[in-house]
C-alpha cells in the first residue's frame, strides 16, 4: 500500500469515526429522528452531542499536532504538547481564578485566566531560553521542564491553602473534560486550530530537516532560529487555547503522532494531515467511550486517555528497543 493510499484510508476511517460518534452514547440517536422537527433526540444531537464531538475533534487534532512538532523539535518521542509548561501555566491561571472565587467575565473568566496562565508560561520559557543567547533547543527544554514544575507546585500550593470545594474544583479541572466546552467557543477554537495546523503544514519541509539536526538543517538553508520560534509560538497558542477550554487532556499528543509515524513514516507534509485527522478522531472516540463506559455517569476524558497512555508507553518502549533507536 502506498503512503498516499494509507493516508487516504486513514482520513476516511478517522472521518467516519468522528461522524458516527455523536450518534452513539448511552442512547443511540437515529438518522430519522434528526429529520423530525422538534424531536428530543434531534435536540440532544444538535445542542449537546455534535458540538461536543466537534470540540473533541478539534482538541484532539490540536494536542496531537502540538505533540508532533515538539517531538520533532526535541527529537524525542516522549515530548508532549505539555512539555514546555503550557498546561501547568494554564492550570495555574485557572486555579487562581477558582481560588479567588472570581466571577468576572462569567463563563469566559476561567477560560481567560487559564489562557493568561498559558501565555505567562510561554513568555517565561521564551525569556529563559533567550537569556542564554540564541534559541537553544536544550535550554528551551530545560526551561520548559522548570516552568512546568514551578507552576505545578503553585497549583498544589493553591489547592493546599484553598477550601475543600475550591480544591475539588481545581482537581476536577486538572482531570481534563469536554463537558465545559461551550458551543460559542467552538468557532474560536476551530479558527486557532486550523490556522495552527496550516502553519505547521506550511513548515513541514523545515520540520523534516530539523529532525535531521539543527546544524544540518541550517546547512541546507533552513532559518533555524526563526523556524523554531514560529513552531514554539504556534504550538503553544494552540495547546494553550485547548487547555484553557478543556483542562489538560494528557497522552493524546504523545500517542497519536507516534502511531501516525508507525503507519506513515517521517514526512511531515503527510504526517501533519494524518495527525490532524487521527488525533481528532481519537479524542472524539475516546470522548464517546468516556460517556458510555459508566453511563449515565461520565469518566473524565483525561483519566481515560491517561489509562490508555500507560500501556502505549510500554509498547513504545519495547518497540523502540527492538528498532534500536528512540525516534
Amino acid at each position: 500500500m502506498t503512503t498516499r493510499t494509507k493516508l487516504a484510508s486513514l482520513i476516511i476511517i478517522a472521518g467516519l469515526a468522528t461522524i458516527i460518534s455523536p450518534f452513539l452514547g448511552a442512547d443511540l440517536i437515529s438518522l430519522s429522528s434528526l429529520q423530525t422537527p422538534g424531536h428530543p433526540e434531534a435536540e440532544v444531537f444538535w445542542v449537546l452531542r455534535l458540538p461536543r464531538s466537534l470540540g473533541a475533534f478539534l482538541a484532539g487534532a490540536g494536542l496531537s499536532l502540538g505533540g508532533m512538532v515538539f517531538q520533532a523539535l526535541f527529537r524525542n518521542p516522549l515530548a508532549t504538547p505539555f512539555t514546555l509548561g503550557v498546561a501547568s501555566g494554564s492550570a495555574f491561571g485557572a486555579s487562581v481564578y477558582i481560588w479567588l472565587g472570581a466571577s468576572f467575565l462569567g463563563s469566559f473568566g476561567p477560560l481567560s485566566a487559564s489562557f493568561l496562565g498559558a501565555g505567562l508560561s510561554m513568555a517565561l520559557v521564551y525569556l529563559a531560553t533567550r537569556s542564554q543567547g540564541g534559541l537553544s533547543t536544550s535550554v528551551m527544554l530545560l526551561a520548559g521542564v522548570i516552568v512546568n514544575f514551578f507552576f505545578s507546585s503553585l497549583v498544589l500550593f493553591i489547592q493546599y491553602i484553598g477550601s475543600a470545594t475550591e480544591s475539588l474544583r481545581i482537581t476536577h479541572w486538572l482531570m481534563g473534560s469536554l463537558v465545559g466546552l461551550e458551543t460559542p467557543r467552538l468557532p474560536d477554537l476551530a479558527f486557532i486550530i486550523l490556522v495552527g495546523a496550516s502553519v505547521i503544514r506550511f513548515l513541514a519541509p523545515e520540520i523534516d530537516l530539523l529532525v535531521s539536526g539543527e546544524e544540518l538543517a541550517a546547512s541546507r538553508g533552513v532559518e533555524v532560529k526563526r523556524t523554531k520560534l514560529i513552531i514554539f509560538v504556534t504550538a503553544s497558542i494552540m495547546v494553550g487555547a485547548i487547555v484553557s477550554l478543556t483542562g489538560p487532556i494528557g497522552f493524546v499528543g504523545l500517542m497519536v503522532p507516534q502511531a501516525a509515524r508507525w503507519i506513515l513514516g517521517w514526512s511531515h507534509k503527510i504526517l501533519t494531515i494524518a495527525v490532524f485527522f487521527l488525533g481528532g478522531a481519537f479524542l472524539a472516540v475516546t470522548d464517546l467511550l468516556s460517556r458510555v463506559i459508566l453511563a449515565p455517569a461520565e469518566i473524565p476524558i483525561g483519566v481515560l486517555t491517561a489509562l490508555l497512555g500507560g500501556p502505549f508507553f510500554l509498547i513504545t518502549l519495547f518497540s523502540t528497543r527492538r528498532k534500536g533507536q528512540l525516534l
Binding site: 529532525v211 539536526g213 541546507r220 533552513v222 517521517w266 533507536q325
Partner: peptide, 19 residues
C-alpha cells in the same frame, strides 16, 4: 557520528534539495 536522522537514504538526500 552522533545523531542519526530517522530517514531512508532516498528521503535524506531529497531533503537536502530544500534550498
Amino acid at each position: 557520528g552522533g545523531w542519526i536522522p530517522p530517514y531512508t537514504v532516498r528521503e535524506f538526500i531529497t531533503l537536502s534539495r530544500y534550498s
